[in-house]
Design a binder for these strands. Structure first.
Lengths: 205, 205
DNA sequence: GTCTATAGAGGGATAGAC
DNA sequence: GTCTATCCCTCTATAGAC
């Protein structure tokens, strides 16, 4: 019986501590990056002692990797929870792009996650690759197959088209929010979405 | 007379030291990021003592900012050295996109620069914004005006189209090289360029 | 299992000699 | 202007008590 009931909320087992440590480390790593993060501050944020962290994780690197893998898994589930992709291409694609872009623009945790992954991609190339294995690859395959299945769209290279769509919206998030470019060179997401859907429509004419 | 002649190559003045320090700090900051960089290693790489660095720059932050500003200025000059943008749109745009993409894909220093700028964009938002002021904004204005001036292209929103073009190629560099995604989800630059030029052509039909 | 206390290394920055 | 030597702090990681 290791379940936590409301009546025994004071008692905590190891799994709870691990989750608390991961939550605390999320704050710290997403705010300061890998090198800038302090294990002392992780301990404070998690509400445990530093020694407890080291009893559950091998070292700072092990904790960082565990956190990133957990976050990537959660992102994957939240993105591909209920994507159907059926119906009129014009509407389906517009909704898909707009929804993905809006979610990314409004989710500052995602932006911090993306910033840290890119910033540490020299030290931890395998962590950046997890994003592609878990999110970009399955996502691009779904969209590419949809584009290919709709022959009226008349797209010569669906895989390349996915890179145009994905690249345009991901880059907008990186440029406008992550890099704070919106004050210098602003672009409304509606205009980008309109431009992309207009291009796809012209393809089929 | 502070010029350095070939006959007095041993003698160095302050300007030389400053340049050596910036060169040494480039290695260190681009390889390890701001927090991960060590002033001791900068001193070794530059061939000067740590105290000499602090006599020319206020602190680590000041040196980092000076370096990033220098690199941004150099990038700007190398990109907009000889861009004419005249002639048949189909050819001009294809060449422009292909050249920009190839240069970015082959320039690992640019990639490290981009990685560090993004990684530190939470701590130093003004540095990321320098990139937009010096590179993205002037570049996008040149391309946008070209697109608008060619009425046969029939582009409803040239500014938004620039974001599609720029976003697609910059994102490819980030995804394939900076984040090491090419082993997981590869995409050849030719196919992306073909897709983009095909879209632009369809617009005008 | 979890804590406090601390070891041991490396960080940024500076004083003082030359 | 430039160096060597050093200060003081924070860091990761662990030893030992409970």
């Amino acid at each position: 019986m290791t379940r936590t009931k409301a009546s025994e909320i004071e008692r905590e087992n190891s799994s709870d501590k691990i989750e608390k440590i991961l939550q605390g480390s999320k704050q710290e790593f997403l705010a300061h990056g890998y090198t800038g993060a302090s294990m002392d501050r992780v301990a404070v944020a998690a509400g445990v002692s530093k020694a407890t962290i080291y009893s559950h994780f091998q070292d700072k690197e092990g904790l960082f990797k565990a956190l990133i893998e957990q976050l990537a898994r959660k992102r994957f589930e939240s993105i591909f929870g209920a994507q159907t992709l059926e119906g009129e291409p014009n509407i389906v694609l517009r909704q898909l792009l707009a929804k993905a872009l809006t979610q990314m623009l409004e989710d500052s945790e995602f932006q911090a996650f993306q910033r840290v992954i890119i910033g540490e991609s020299a030290r931890f190339p395998e962590l950046a690759q997890i994003l592609f294995r878990c999110i970009a690859k399955p996502g691009s395959e779904i969209i590419s197959q949809y584009l290919a299945s709709r022959s009226e769209l008349n797209i010569p290279d669906p895989d390349a088209m996915v890179w145009v769509l994905m690249g345009s919206i991901v880059h907008l998030v990186i440029a406008q929010e992550i890099m704070h470019g919106k004050e210098i060179l602003p672009m409304e997401s509606d205009r980008l979405i309109n431009a992309l859907t207009h291009l796809i429509n012209k393809c089929g004419e």
